[in-house]
Write a protein that binds this DNA or RNA. Sequence first.
DNA 1: CGGGTTCTTGACTATCTTCAACGAAAGTGG
DNA 2: CCACTTTCGTTGAAGATAGTCAAGAACCCG
Lengths: 224, 224
Amino acid sequence: MYVTISAENTKAALTAPLGTTATPCSETRLKAQSYLYLEGDDVDWVYQVISGVVRLTRLLADGRRQVIAFGYPGDIVGFPVDGVHHTDCEALTETRLQPYRRLCLENGECSPSLHRALLQAALREIGAMQDHFMMLGRKSAVEKVASFLSVLAERVGEDVGDYKQFTLPMCRSDIADFLGLTMETVSRTFTKLRKNNIIAIDNIHTIIVLRPTELQALTLGERD
Amino acid sequence: MYVTISAENTKAALTAPLGTTATPCSETRLKAQSYLYLEGDDVDWVYQVISGVVRLTRLLADGRRQVIAFGYPGDIVGFPVDGVHHTDCEALTETRLQPYRRLCLENGECSPSLHRALLQAALREIGAMQDHFMMLGRKSAVEKVASFLSVLAERVGEDVGDYKQFTLPMCRSDIADFLGLTMETVSRTFTKLRKNNIIAIDNIHTIIVLRPTELQALTLGERD
DNA sequence: CGGGTTCTTGACTATCTTCAACGAAAGTGG
DNA sequence: CCACTTTCGTTGAAGATAGTCAAGAACCCG
């Protein structure tokens, strides 16, 4: 999952399974905090997240970290770069994944419809990443956090009265490393949104969006 | 072209043409400052840059701009997202491009080797963009500019004695919008590198890297 | 040569980071 | 179940990095 400029993707489109034909391989299960693969590992499979959430990260030698994406149900993770994984992938919650052979994507060694679906997923990935560039390069802290929460509310939020509620399976520093901020700035921005009654923070990992429209407006720089 | 963490790609690999078989379509020529496509246009072709340089951009409603990538010879531009272009693409110099049918990439309606080559290019694009996230999210101004110049020196620099020389076909604000900085910061950083004798600026658009090793070190945060 | 654009530089400011302390929550072992 | 420890999150104060605004210099092109 990336924080796209406009969250125009519908839940339906995103969470639809890829193959309509019988899948050749049974699902993979992953406990929270366990790794699916590490940077440099050979790629044999790409995975579609069925349930749960995973985190893709890259590390710099000096310890700086960038969270590349969060993988929510419907997302495909593990695209190979020259046959090798280019990020680490860790499960944030217990996660179920549907594996697809790498060669199905790369050589079409499977049903044409599945090959096409994986390819389309890769192309959508490129588009989503392009959006995320704008986010990292050109948005303020408030805009980044508002975008992040807005997309999550849209994608995984549950209606609670007039509000949208969802849980954050990742910690604050994961969010910070995803948005190119520090943990402290993320925390302060959450507090600011809470004090302005845009959101409520029930449990630390449970967000309630009280005013979705205002949150959406902050996404593009209206005053807070 | 993205500013990758380690410029380990060789020139040869990057500039190799995709299809060894006869290409079905003659090359496209583009004058400097003319657009190849705009965001929202339907995609009929993807293009490999043969010579010249193009610039891919995305715009926000309020005018903020992100340069997504520069397309140098060997690069593929124009990957479709749901059949539609997701960026604007403008030629920075006179440019020659080899078009390939979109359906060759998406449906394999061409030679299998060409289909595979385009697919591999898309997957490499994903990997390169992941690297660029680190750049935008986690690097300082000096690191960004040093990375940018270092990659260019490696990729298009010509040996002049012990030095590497190359021209910048883009203006300072293009570089700024690529790196997530302002024009002024880019300019100041150039000056700093020049005063430290890491680079020389011959003409405004001609850079000579005097100390490639030091420049490379600045890429990852060694003191300047 | 002149006019417009692009680039550089300076002074000032804003935003975000850093460092540090504290508090809340969660895990551990008796 | 409770005390202890550790991790994670929040908050504050101070500082640094990059942004803004403005002026002047260099470059480009007819």
